[in-house]
Design a binder for these strands. Structure first.
Lengths: 201, 201, 201, 201
DNA sequence: GATGAATGAGGGTTCATTCAT
DNA sequence: AATGAATGAACCCTCATTCAT
C-alpha cells in the first residue's frame, strides 16, 4: 500500500542491472538504460542525480539484497562455525540465483576509487557481520586465535571458490559431496586447533 | 646494449600501468597517459595500434611477469602440496611487491567480454599450471579426489585472502605465524583424507 | 502547417551544401558545418548518423531535386527528340539556377568508390530516364540505331557543354541563338539518319 | 644521360598515381604513397614540398602527357574539323590506355578551389589548343560562327561521352561504326552551316 | 512528473610535416 | 641524400547532463 517505489524507478533499476551486467558500468550508456526501461532520458534524472549516483544506488540495491539473503537464519545456528557455514550456503545460493546482481556487486568493488582498499573494507556489510561472528568465535575459543580480518578473507575466499564452481557447474549444487567439502573446508580453516596463538603484536 | 625495448614504449607502459591502476582502464585517457609518459599523443600510436591493444598488452605484460614469478622453483618441490604451497608464497609475495600490476591483472579479467566466464578460465596461465599440479596430485592419491577445477578455485581463493591480508598488513609478512597458517590451510583444504570420492559423474 | 522538416535539419542541409560546394566533402569539417548552421556539433548527429550519411543524404537531396526538375513536362512532348530537348533545357536551367547543388551532385559521383564506373551507371536516375526515352526513340526509328548507352553519354556530354557555357555566360541564356544551337546539336547527334545500324554485337 | 628524373622521384609519382586513382587525393596518405614507392616518409619531402605540391605536380604530369598525346599529328591534318577529329581520337585512345592518369586529371579539376571555373579554364592546355583550332576554323568559315568557348565545350562533351563508352566497352574500339559516329557528330556539331551568326554582342 | 532536443566537453585516432641522426 | 621517430593540430564522434515545453 505504502512505500512502493515508483514504478519508473524500479524499471530503471532493472534495466540498469541488466546492462551493467552485460556491458560494464562505463559501457552502458544512459541512453541505453532509459531505452531499455522504456522512459525518456531526462526522466532518469528525476530519480538519480547522476550516472555515478545511479551506479552507487544499483550497487547498494544489489548489496543489500545479498546481505539480507546471507543473513537469513543465522540466529538459529548455535556455534560460530555453524553460523559461518550457514552463511556461506546462503551466499552461494543467492549469488548463483542472482548472477547479475552478484557480478555487479563484485564489479563495483573492483573499481579503483569506488571501493577502495581490501575487500574487507569494501564489502563492509558482509564483512562487518562475518567479522562479528568470527570475533565471537575467537572469544569463545571456538575459532582460531588469528586476526579476524584474515580469517574473514579466508572465509570469503573459500566462498568465492565454491560460488564460481557452482556457477559453472550448476548441477553440482544438487549433489551432497561438494557441499560437504565446502563445509569441511570452512571448519578446517577456521576452527581452533592446538596451535599457539601468535605472540601478540 | 642490444635489443632493449624502446625507451618510449617502456615509458608508455609504466605510465599506463600507473594510471590504469589509479583510475581504471576506461577512466584513464590516452591524453593523460601520454602526458604522464612525457610524449605526444600521436606517439603512443607508434607503439600500440589502439587503446584496446594497449590495454591488452599491459595485461599481458603484468600477467606474464606474475606467472613467471609464481612458477619460480616449483620443480624443486617434491610433492604436489609442496609445489602448491611454494606457488602460493611466490604469488603472494609478487603481488604485494607489484601491487599495481596485480590490481591491473585482476581488473582486466573482470571486464565483461574481455575475460569471460569463471576465473578458472580467465587466468588461463595461472590456472593451467595449478590444475596440472592438482591433477598430478590427485592421480598420486596425494590430493583430494575432487574436481580439480574446484580445488583450483579454492587454492586461489585462499591465496587471494592472504594476499589481501598481507597487502593491508605488510609487516605480517615478516612473521612466521600467518605463513604457517596459510600453508596449513592449503594442506587442509587440498590434501587427500579418508573421504570417499564423489560417486563419479 | 504540419510535417515540415525540422528547422535544424534544414539549416544543416543548407550549411552543408554551401560548404561542400566551396570546400569539397572531405575538406568541410563537421565543426564548420555546424558552426555555419548555428548549432552545436553534437546536434548534427541527431539528424545524421555520420558524416558519410550526411554526404549521402546531401547528394540524394540534390539529385532528387535535379531529377524532378529535369523531368518536368516531358510527357507533353510528342517525340523522343522533343522530350530529350525539353529535358536538356530543364537540366541546364536547373543547374544554372542551383549551381551549388549541381556541383555537389557531380562531385559526389566522381568520388572513387562512391559512384563507380561510367557516368551512365552513376547518375542512375538521370540515365535511366534518358535511356528509356532513347530506347523508345530507337524502337520507333526516330533515333539512331546505336547503343542507347552511347547516345545517352553524348546527350549528357552536350548538356554539360552548354551548362558550363551558360554558367560562365549567364546572359547568353536570354539569347535565342545558343538554345537553338543546343537543340540542333541534340537533333543532329541523336536523330536517325540513313546510316546502317551496326552489324550487331 | 642527362635530365633523367631521379629514380626515387619517379617511383613516388608512379605510386602516387596508383593510389590517387584508387583512393582519391585525400584518402591516399603520404604514408601509403611512400610505402608503395619503397622509400621513407621524409624522403618524399625532398622531392615535393608538400602533399598539395605533390598533387599539383601529379596533375601536371598526367595533364602534360595527355596533352602531348592529344596533339600528335595534328599538323598533318588539313582542315580544322579534321584536326579536331584527329585530336578526339588521340584523346580517347590515350585516356582508355591510361585510365589512371585520365581519372586523376579529371578528379583534380573537380576539386573546388583547385581547378576553378568552367572546364574551359581548368583544362587550360587542352582548351587553349582546341580553342585555337576552332577560332582558326571560324575565321576560315569552316566552323560555325559561334562562341569558340561554347564549341570547345561541346567538343569535349562529345569526347567525354565516347571515352566513357569505350572505357566500359573496350571491344567497341575495334569496330568501325562507333568511330564513324563519333567523327560524324564532331562534324555535325561544329561544321559551319547556313545559319546566321549571332548578332555580335 | 515527464519529455527528448540540444549541448559541448572530451574521447580515440589520423596524418602531414619536421628534424636529429 | 635519406631516414623514420616524433609531433600535435585537427578530425569525427559519443554521451552525461540540462531545460524549455
Amino acid at each position: 500500500m505504502v512505500l512502493e517505489e515508483s514504478d519508473k524507478k524500479q524499471r530503471i533499476i532493472t534495466a540498469a542491472i541488466d546492462l551493467f551486467y552485460k556491458k560494464d558500468f562505463e559501457a552502458a550508456s544512459i541512453q541505453e538504460i532509459t531505452e531499455a526501461a522504456g522512459i525518456a532520458k531526462g526522466t532518469l534524472y528525476l530519480y538519480f542525480s547522476s550516472k555515478d549516483a545511479l551506479i552507487d544506488e544499483i550497487f547498494a540495491y544489489c548489496n543489500i539484497r545479498n546481505v539480507q539473503a546471507c543473513d537469513e537464519g543465522l540466529d538459529d545456528e548455535p556455534t560460530a562455525i555453524a553460523k559461518l557455514q550457514r552463511r556461506m550456503q546462503n551466499a552461494i545460493r543467492w549469488r548463483v540465483a542472482h548472477k547479475k546482481e552478484a557480478v555487479i556487486e563484485q564489479m563495483y568493488m573492483s573499481i579503483p576509487g569506488r571501493g577502495e582498499g581490501s575487500r574487507y573494507t569494501q564489502q563492509h556489510r558482509h564483512f562487518a557481520i562475518v567479522d562479528k561472528i568470527i570475533q565471537a568465535g575467537i572469544a569463545r575459543g571456538e575459532i582460531k586465535n588469528a586476526q579476524s580480518s584474515l580469517l574473514g578473507e579466508v572465509f570469503f575466499g573459500i566462498g568465492g571458490a565454491f560460488y564460481y564452481y557452482f556457477r559453472e557447474n550448476p548441477r553440482q549444487m544438487e549433489e551432497e559431496y561438494p557441499w560437504r567439502l565446502c563445509m569441511q573446508m570452512v571448519r578446517d580453516c577456521l576452527q581452533a586447533d592446538g596451535l599457539k596463538p601468535p605472540p601478540d603484536k
